[in-house]
Computed example of a mutant assay.
Amino acid sequence: MPTLAERFAAAYDQVQVAVEKAERVPNSVKLLAVSKTKPIADIEAVAALGQTDFGENYAQEAVEKAQKLAHLGLQWHFIGPIQSNKTRPLAEHMDWLHTVERDKIARRLSEQRPAELKPLQVCIQVNISAEPQKSGAMPADVKDLAALIQTLPNIELRGLMAIVENTADEAKLAQQFTAMQTLFDQLKTRYDNVDTLSMGMSQDLQHAINHGSTMVRIGTAIFGARQPRQSN
């Protein structure tokens, strides 16, 4: 069975190969190591290999890990659904939030971000597949939400995030990835600080990178199967 170091190296190489196949600039796509439910020791081990960006899905777990590993200077990305009653700890301890989907959450994050910290870097989550069970703003609402975020003092809009439909239909996947790339390109023309398109996981990584993704989320392929967790 491959070691953690071997799995991380393989995931990193997978991203670089996908970038090369897409004829993108080398190192233009960042690997976000999704460490949800994984122990501190595993994160420390991957950080020791040079990884600095880690993604978490559950607010309490994310904050606890950020606090315990503050000495490592890591970048913590929250990539799970944001509950209104969990915005304060996230605003206080995360570096990035990828899942802003409505005005209320954006305003609360800005109000609750400590003044002594750098602005919280945020992405708007887009429900590009229009699945009713999935979080995210509708594509038609992205422009107005982005405009609001730009007015808020303690958060900074960096781009868009999406989780495409879980389907084997290649045409449908291509349609959704293309739609996200178009939305991202439109946003970049309006705002100089927009540079991040967070989409793609192990199973659809090549598609995502072909369509302009700048950050891909990889968890199980690095850390192994998820562990049971207690609810926040």
Rank of each mutant, 00 (worst) to 15 (best):
E165W: 08
T151A: 03
I163D: 05
L160Q: 06
R158M: 13
Q125H: 10
N127I: 07
A106Q: 02
R113M: 03
D141I: 04
A171T: 15
G136S: 08
Q150K: 12
R102P: 01
E101S: 12
P132V: 13
A140C: 08
A174D: 14
V100N: 00
T167Q: 14
P132T: 11
A147W: 01
E101H: 06
I124E: 01
L120Y: 04
C123I: 07
A147T: 10
E111T: 14
I149F: 03
S110T: 08
L97S: 09
K104A: 08
I105R: 02
N154Y: 05
E111P: 07
P139H: 03
Q133H: 07
I149M: 06
L120G: 10
D103P: 04
M161Q: 06
A147I: 05
T99M: 09
K172M: 11
G159E: 09
A130S: 15
D169E: 14
G136R: 03
E165C: 15
V164E: 09
T151L: 02
Q112S: 13
L120D: 03
K172L: 15
T99S: 15
G136W: 02
L173T: 11
C123H: 06
L109A: 04
L97D: 03
I155S: 01
R113C: 05
P114I: 08
Q112R: 15
A115M: 12
G159T: 12
Q133N: 10
H98R: 13
D169C: 12
T99H: 06
A115I: 12
A140V: 07
R102H: 03
V142T: 04
P132I: 11
A130I: 12
E116G: 05
E131A: 13
E111C: 11
Q133D: 08
Q133T: 11
L152T: 02
S129P: 09
E156F: 01
P132N: 11
D141N: 12
Q150N: 15
Q150C: 13
E111G: 10
I163N: 07
A140I: 04
L160V: 08
A106K: 01
S135I: 09
L90P: 09
Q150S: 13
A130L: 14
R102D: 00
K172Y: 06
E131R: 11
V164A: 15
S110M: 08
S129R: 05
E111A: 15
L148R: 03
N127E: 04
A174S: 15
A147Q: 08
N166F: 15
P114G: 13
D95R: 09
V100Y: 00
I105W: 02
L109K: 01
T99Q: 08
M161G: 06
K134E: 04
S129N: 10
E101R: 04
R113V: 03
K134Q: 06
N154L: 08
Q112N: 14
R108S: 12
P132Q: 10
G136K: 05
V100M: 00
D169G: 12
S110A: 12
A137K: 00
V164K: 10
P153A: 11
M161L: 10
S135D: 08
K134P: 05
D103A: 15
P89Y: 10
R88A: 15
L173E: 04
I105K: 03
L157R: 00
A147L: 06
A137M: 00
P139I: 04
E131F: 09
H98W: 09
D103G: 07
